[in-house]
Design a protein around this nucleic acid. Structure first.
Length: 270
DNA sequence: CTTCTGACA
DNA sequence: TGTCAGGA
């Protein structure tokens, strides 16, 4: 029995696939100790150390081609290599942290979103800065063409709230939250809100009348524009419908504020 | 039965 | 990166 291993023995020992070992060879980072007369690659102790080295660098996020070049590196260049890999790891952590926050937000809002049992809620909201996104005719639904013409990145777009605000005319403007540009600021304050699920944009209008009916039923003194917030990411919670929140500012010091909070609010018609 | 090369998704 | 063919 030889002191060298066949490729499958070597792969099993090192915990990698046979394919990967051949791949490293093709990329010029790992040669077999020798090739036997039946064309089998054979691997010895040197290769074990060497592959460990390669695998370590891969863990640090160093690409195979960079490993190839690193074979001739000075200690200083290795430091540079590690600094670069550190940057990559930190960027990855940042990306994952954002993802974590997004998931938490969806979970939080998803638990709060219950249009069947508690469609109407009174919420304290902070001021929010909105950047104008596009303008639509009230009659025209949002279609793929609009998105193609105005969206830089649609997937990102629907991971955040989209604000539909009518300026009183027959057009409606879509805004996104922004900390850079501010075309419109929704003031902080107490908002009367209604959560709805709709099949499409057209069905949204059906919910607007009942919303105002509820407002007058509770003698709320509201002001400012009606704001429709589209939370398409909440569709993650099973339904194929669109999630919207209608909201309108309640003017400061509303009459019987406490009474409203403790009174069961109107259910939506089914 | 194992491996090799090459190709492909 | 896994998988498959076809040959040794």
């Amino acid at each position: 029995m030889k002191n060298e291993l066949t490729i499958s023995e070597f792969a099993k020992l090192m915990g990698v696939s046979v394919h990967q070992i051949r791949y490293f060879e093709e990329k010029g980072v790992l040669q077999p100790a020798y090739v036997s007369d039946n064309q089998y690659r054979m691997y010895g102790i040197d290769q074990i150390y060497h592959l460990s080295h390669i695998l370590l660098l891969r863990k640090l996020g160093v690409s195979v081609s960079a490993i190839q070049e690193s074979m001739a590196y000075t200690p200083g260049q290795y430091q540079q290599l590690l600094r670069h890999s550190l940057e990559g790891v930190e960027a990855e952590i940042g990306r994952l942290t954002e993802l974590q926050q997004f998931i938490r937000q969806v979970l939080r809002e998803g638990q709060n979103f219950d249009p069947v049992n508690k469609p109407y809620q009174i919420k304290e909201r902070k001021a929010v800065q909105l950047a104008k996104w596009l303008e639509l005719d009230w009659a025209a639904a949002l279609n793929a063409r609009h998105l193609a013409e105005h969206a830089r990145n649609v997937p990102d777009l629907f991971e955040s709230d989209v604000y539909w605000i009518s300026d009183g005319t027959n057009s409606i403007t879509l805004y996104m939250e922004s900390n850079k540009r501010s075309d419109l600021t929704l003031p902080a304050g107490t908002y009367f809100t209604k959560q709805v699920l709709v099949e499409n944009d057209e069905n949204l209008e059906q919910h607007i009348e009942p919303f105002y009916t509820a407002i007058s039923a509770h003698s709320l003194d509201v002001g400012g524009p009606l704001v429709l917030v589209e939370k398409s990411y909440l569709s993650l919670f099973g339904n194929k419908k669109l999630c919207y929140e209608l909201q309108i500012l309640i003017k400061p010091d509303p009459p019987e504020h406490t009474l409203i909070k403790s009174t069961p609010l109107q259910k939506p018609q089914s």
